[in-house]
Design a protein around this nucleic acid. Sequence first.
DNA 1: CGACTGTATCGACAGCCGTCGAATCAAGGA
DNA 2: TCCTTGATTCGACGGCTGTCGATACAGTCG
Lengths: 122, 122
Amino acid sequence: MSNLELPVLDQDDAAACCSPMVREPLGEEAAVDLARMFKALSDPVRLRLLSLIASHEGGEACVCDLTGPFDVSQPTISHHLKVLREAGLVDSERRGTWVYYWVLPTALARLSSLLQAPAAAR
Amino acid sequence: MSNLELPVLDQDDAAACCSPMVREPLGEEAAVDLARMFKALSDPVRLRLLSLIASHEGGEACVCDLTGPFDVSQPTISHHLKVLREAGLVDSERRGTWVYYWVLPTALARLSSLLQAPAAAR
DNA sequence: CGACTGTATCGACAGCCGTCGAATCAAGGA
DNA sequence: TCCTTGATTCGACGGCTGTCGATACAGTCG
């Protein structure tokens, strides 16, 4: 079958959390909350950072692995990582000299299920 | 033919278009393009507008249906609709006196599949 | 035509955001 | 202890963004 045994989060579980926004109008506070997360994704550098972290071996990456691929300064990278962390999309931990970042899959799944387009609707 | 060709789209097709960003690092231009769409979603008013349009009966809504639920002025709503349209998330058409907006499901599906998270195995 | 309603554009303004270099903090090694 | 490397914080600056009121445009109806 076409399904790789790659561990992809069960889409139904994710949908159980937040049904697609195309189904019913978003509440006011929910919109504020979600907009905060989308804003964290609204910068090319942050999108690539998130992608780099998630696809890094072990699912986590040291900051030192993240500064290389970009044309911006290291403080700027640090700033973007902070934005992603405060949006609840990643978390980090210091281990000795280095600081490691990893993606919080639940947050991504929440946004993903929210954006699910109307299937064979109506 | 039934011009009511509802853009029904298969979730698998959408996934075939853009594999999750947690699988492999995002390219630079792809990140710029995607960030533009996420930026359009990074405002609470626009999120609610999108949700209102998509969940409206018939899958489309007149601007006159959209100004009521918000505390902002009509020009501001018009501005947000323009942002959504230029991001490729909605399209619009004038019919007589009124202008109707509808969601482009392919765009939402693209973002949704991009954000599909890996299982929270760790 | 002229008045009226619905929608978009314009110009302005305040606040936010991405970026930088400099300074600071944290940990490890001589 | 001092020096070095990794990472964050600070302060500043230019540009972008959300909002408004005023104005302009598009149709419809008398």
